[in-house]
Simulated assay, not measured.
Amino acid sequence: MSKSRAIYSDTQLFAASLFQLKVTVWERTADDIPVRVDDGGIIEKITPLYVKINGAYYERSDCEFRVDTSDVKS
């Protein structure tokens, strides 16, 4: 099983975009259970409120963005 790391800050999102890392999108249900809503793709656009991945906009305050740590070089 691969491990992933959440990215939140503008800098982390920009770096993931710059290095074209595959980013998955997660949301939490009302029961606080994480559910993957997008299997992943390259970040196309970052705004203060939204992140665009695979042509869809995801609200930053409602979603968690994750990168596979095996894609990240130390």
Results as ranks from 00 to 15, higher is better:
Gln20Glu: 14
Lys73Tyr: 08
Lys45Asp: 08
Ile43Phe: 01
Val67Gln: 05
Ile42Met: 02
Lys22Tyr: 00
Ile46Pro: 02
Thr24Val: 15
Asp32Arg: 14
Leu13Val: 03
Asn54Gln: 14
Glu59Met: 12
Phe65Ala: 09
Thr11Leu: 07
Val67Thr: 07
Gly41Phe: 01
Ala56Ile: 10
Lys3Ala: 12
Phe19Ile: 04
Tyr8Glu: 10
Ser61Val: 15
Ala6Asn: 05
Val23Glu: 00
Asp31Leu: 09
Arg28Tyr: 15
Leu49Met: 10
Ile7Pro: 02
Glu27Ala: 11
Lys22Ile: 05
Met1Cys: 08
Ala16Ile: 01
Val72Gly: 04
Ile7Phe: 00
Leu13Gly: 04
Lys73Pro: 03
Trp26Cys: 09
Glu44Ser: 05
Asp10Thr: 09
Pro48Glu: 09
Tyr57Gln: 11
Phe14Gln: 12
Arg66Ile: 01
Ser17Trp: 02
Gly41Pro: 05
Asp39Lys: 12
Glu59Ala: 13
Val25Tyr: 07
Ser70Ile: 08
Lys45Cys: 08
Gly41Met: 08
Val37Trp: 06
Ile7Glu: 05
Thr24Trp: 03
Val25Ile: 13
Ser70Pro: 01
Phe65Pro: 07
Lys52Asn: 01
Ile7Leu: 03
Ala16Asp: 06
Met1Glu: 06
Arg60Trp: 09
Asp39Asn: 15
Gly41Leu: 07
Asp31Val: 03
Gly41Thr: 01
Gly55Phe: 10
Tyr50Ser: 09
Ala16Val: 02
Gln12Gly: 05
Val72Arg: 12
Asp71Arg: 07
Ser61Asp: 14
Thr29Gly: 12
Ala56Trp: 00
Glu59Asn: 12
Leu18Ser: 09
Tyr58Arg: 04
Asp32Cys: 13
Val67Met: 05
Ala15Asp: 12
Lys22Gln: 11
Gln20Lys: 15
Ala30Arg: 12
Val51Asn: 00
Trp26Ile: 15
Asp31Met: 07
Lys3Asn: 12
Thr11Met: 01
Ile7Trp: 00
Gly40Met: 06
Asp38Met: 06
Asp71Thr: 15
Asp39His: 10
Ser2His: 01
Ile43Gly: 07
Arg28Thr: 14
Asn54Thr: 05
Phe65Met: 07
Asp39Ser: 13
Ile43Leu: 08
Gln20Thr: 14
Pro48Val: 06
Thr69Ser: 06
Pro34His: 02
Arg36Pro: 03
Thr69Ile: 15
Pro48His: 05
Glu44Ala: 09
Lys52Cys: 05
Ala30Met: 11
Tyr58Phe: 15
Ser2Pro: 10
Arg36Asn: 12
Lys52Phe: 00
Glu44Leu: 06
Ser9Gln: 06
Ile42Val: 15
Lys22Met: 04
Ile43Met: 06
Ser4Ala: 03
Tyr8Cys: 06
Ala15Gly: 05
Met1Asn: 11
Ser74Asp: 07
Glu59Thr: 12
Leu21Arg: 09
Gly41Trp: 00
Val35Leu: 13
Thr24Glu: 15
Asp38Leu: 13
Met1Lys: 11
Arg5Lys: 09
Thr11Ser: 08
Arg5Gly: 03
Thr47Arg: 02
Thr29His: 07
Ser9Trp: 02
Gly41Asp: 00
Tyr8Pro: 00
Ile53Leu: 08
Ser70Tyr: 04
Arg28Asp: 14
Val35Met: 09
Asp10Gly: 13
Ser74Cys: 07
Leu13Ser: 03
Arg28Glu: 15
Ser70Arg: 12
Arg36Ile: 08
Ser70Leu: 11
Ala15Ile: 10
Glu59Gln: 09
Val51Leu: 10
Pro34Ser: 03
Thr11Gln: 06
Ser4Asn: 01
Phe14Ser: 11
Leu21Ser: 02
